[in-house]
Amino acid sequence: MQHTSTQDTLVGLFVAAGVASLFFLSLQVSNLSSFYDKETYTITARFENSGGLKVKSPVSAAGVKIGQVSAIDFDPKSYQSVVTMKIQAPYNTLPDDTTASIFTAGLLGEQYVNLEPGGSETFLHDNSKIDITQSAIILEKAIGQFLFKAAEEKK
Protein backbone atom coordinates (compact mmCIF):
# COMPACT_ATOMS: atom_id res chain seq x y z
CA MET A 1 0.00 0.00 0.00
CA GLN A 2 1.24 3.39 -0.98
CA HIS A 3 1.87 5.54 2.05
CA THR A 4 4.24 8.20 3.21
CA SER A 5 4.83 9.73 6.58
CA THR A 6 3.99 13.16 5.13
CA GLN A 7 0.55 11.86 4.30
CA ASP A 8 0.13 10.57 7.84
CA THR A 9 1.23 13.92 9.25
CA LEU A 10 -1.22 15.80 7.08
CA VAL A 11 -4.08 13.51 8.06
CA GLY A 12 -3.06 14.03 11.68
CA LEU A 13 -3.08 17.78 11.23
CA PHE A 14 -6.45 17.67 9.52
CA VAL A 15 -8.06 15.62 12.28
CA ALA A 16 -6.46 17.79 14.98
CA ALA A 17 -7.70 20.99 13.31
CA GLY A 18 -11.20 19.54 12.94
CA VAL A 19 -11.36 18.41 16.56
CA ALA A 20 -9.94 21.75 17.72
CA SER A 21 -12.71 23.51 15.77
CA LEU A 22 -15.32 21.35 17.45
CA PHE A 23 -13.90 22.30 20.85
CA PHE A 24 -13.76 25.93 19.83
CA LEU A 25 -17.41 25.86 18.81
CA SER A 26 -18.46 24.09 22.00
CA LEU A 27 -16.49 26.15 24.49
CA GLN A 28 -15.87 29.54 22.95
CA VAL A 29 -18.96 30.01 20.83
CA SER A 30 -21.77 28.32 22.76
CA ASN A 31 -22.88 28.62 26.35
CA LEU A 32 -21.61 25.17 27.23
CA SER A 33 -18.77 26.50 29.36
CA SER A 34 -20.88 28.90 31.44
CA PHE A 35 -23.02 26.29 33.13
CA TYR A 36 -21.14 23.15 32.56
CA ASP A 37 -20.31 21.30 35.74
CA LYS A 38 -21.43 24.10 38.06
CA GLU A 39 -23.76 23.49 40.97
CA THR A 40 -26.96 25.48 41.16
CA TYR A 41 -29.91 25.95 43.51
CA THR A 42 -33.47 26.63 42.48
CA ILE A 43 -35.72 29.51 43.48
CA THR A 44 -39.15 30.50 42.19
CA ALA A 45 -40.95 33.79 41.79
CA ARG A 46 -44.54 34.65 40.85
CA PHE A 47 -45.22 37.41 38.38
CA GLU A 48 -48.49 38.97 37.27
CA ASN A 49 -47.09 38.85 33.75
CA SER A 50 -43.78 37.39 32.65
CA GLY A 51 -43.96 39.00 29.21
CA GLY A 52 -41.44 37.75 26.70
CA LEU A 53 -39.32 35.88 29.24
CA LYS A 54 -38.15 32.48 27.98
CA VAL A 55 -36.53 29.38 29.35
CA LYS A 56 -32.74 30.02 29.42
CA SER A 57 -33.21 33.78 29.74
CA PRO A 58 -30.49 35.15 32.00
CA VAL A 59 -30.95 35.98 35.67
CA SER A 60 -28.68 38.78 36.84
CA ALA A 61 -27.93 40.86 39.90
CA ALA A 62 -26.28 44.26 39.63
CA GLY A 63 -25.80 43.56 35.93
CA VAL A 64 -23.88 40.33 36.44
CA LYS A 65 -25.33 37.08 35.18
CA ILE A 66 -25.71 34.68 38.11
CA GLY A 67 -28.17 32.13 36.76
CA GLN A 68 -30.84 31.35 34.21
CA VAL A 69 -34.56 30.66 33.95
CA SER A 70 -35.22 26.92 33.94
CA ALA A 71 -39.03 26.82 33.66
CA ILE A 72 -42.02 29.12 33.21
CA ASP A 73 -45.47 27.80 34.19
CA PHE A 74 -48.96 29.23 34.40
CA ASP A 75 -50.68 28.77 37.75
CA PRO A 76 -54.37 28.17 36.93
CA LYS A 77 -55.51 29.12 40.46
CA SER A 78 -53.88 32.48 40.93
CA TYR A 79 -53.62 33.21 37.18
CA GLN A 80 -50.00 34.09 37.72
CA SER A 81 -46.81 33.12 35.94
CA VAL A 82 -44.47 30.95 38.01
CA VAL A 83 -40.85 31.42 36.97
CA THR A 84 -38.30 28.86 38.18
CA MET A 85 -34.67 29.98 38.17
CA LYS A 86 -31.40 28.20 38.69
CA ILE A 87 -28.86 30.30 40.57
CA GLN A 88 -25.22 29.32 40.68
CA ALA A 89 -24.26 27.83 44.04
CA PRO A 90 -21.53 30.37 45.00
CA TYR A 91 -24.14 33.16 45.03
CA ASN A 92 -25.96 31.83 48.07
CA THR A 93 -26.13 35.03 50.08
CA LEU A 94 -29.15 36.64 48.44
CA PRO A 95 -31.46 38.05 51.17
CA ASP A 96 -34.95 36.55 51.33
CA ASP A 97 -36.53 39.97 50.71
CA THR A 98 -34.88 40.24 47.31
CA THR A 99 -37.01 41.84 44.61
CA ALA A 100 -37.30 40.07 41.23
CA SER A 101 -38.14 42.23 38.23
CA ILE A 102 -38.39 41.46 34.55
CA PHE A 103 -36.41 43.99 32.54
CA THR A 104 -35.65 44.41 28.90
CA ALA A 105 -32.08 44.81 27.71
CA GLY A 106 -32.29 47.91 25.54
CA LEU A 107 -35.42 48.96 23.70
CA LEU A 108 -35.71 45.84 21.52
CA GLY A 109 -33.42 43.49 23.43
CA GLU A 110 -34.30 40.29 25.17
CA GLN A 111 -35.97 40.14 28.56
CA TYR A 112 -34.19 39.00 31.70
CA VAL A 113 -34.85 38.65 35.43
CA ASN A 114 -33.09 41.20 37.60
CA LEU A 115 -32.65 40.45 41.30
CA GLU A 116 -32.44 43.50 43.60
CA PRO A 117 -31.18 42.39 47.04
CA GLY A 118 -33.04 43.72 50.11
CA GLY A 119 -31.72 44.14 53.66
CA SER A 120 -32.80 40.91 55.37
CA GLU A 121 -30.37 38.82 57.39
CA THR A 122 -31.76 35.46 56.23
CA PHE A 123 -30.81 34.16 52.79
CA LEU A 124 -32.60 32.44 49.92
CA HIS A 125 -31.90 28.72 49.69
CA ASP A 126 -32.96 25.82 47.46
CA ASN A 127 -36.74 25.91 46.66
CA SER A 128 -37.21 29.35 48.27
CA LYS A 129 -39.84 31.72 46.93
CA ILE A 130 -39.31 35.36 46.11
CA ASP A 131 -42.35 37.31 47.33
CA ILE A 132 -41.68 40.76 45.97
CA THR A 133 -41.89 40.84 42.21
CA GLN A 134 -42.35 43.38 39.48
CA SER A 135 -43.84 42.23 36.21
CA ALA A 136 -42.54 42.76 32.75
CA ILE A 137 -43.22 46.13 31.24
CA ILE A 138 -45.42 45.50 28.25
CA LEU A 139 -44.53 48.12 25.70
CA GLU A 140 -48.04 48.39 24.25
CA LYS A 141 -49.52 48.94 27.73
CA ALA A 142 -46.95 51.57 28.62
CA ILE A 143 -47.56 53.48 25.41
CA GLY A 144 -51.31 53.25 25.93
CA GLN A 145 -51.01 54.64 29.46
CA PHE A 146 -48.76 57.42 28.28
CA LEU A 147 -51.17 58.47 25.57
CA PHE A 148 -54.11 58.33 27.99
CA LYS A 149 -52.21 60.53 30.45
CA ALA A 150 -51.28 63.03 27.77
CA ALA A 151 -54.92 63.25 26.70
CA GLU A 152 -56.01 63.83 30.32
CA GLU A 153 -53.49 66.66 30.76
CA LYS A 154 -54.67 68.44 27.63
CA LYS A 155 -58.21 68.78 28.93
Binding site: F14, A17, G18, S21, V29
Partner: peptide, 9 residues
Protein backbone atom coordinates in the same frame (compact mmCIF):
# COMPACT_ATOMS: atom_id res chain seq x y z
CA UNK B 1 -18.37 17.05 10.46
CA UNK B 2 -14.73 18.02 10.93
CA UNK B 3 -14.76 20.10 7.76
CA UNK B 4 -18.05 21.77 8.72
CA UNK B 5 -16.75 22.59 12.21
CA UNK B 6 -13.61 24.00 10.63
CA UNK B 7 -15.67 26.09 8.23
CA UNK B 8 -17.80 27.55 11.05
CA UNK B 9 -14.85 28.18 13.37
Amino acid sequence: PLLAALFSA
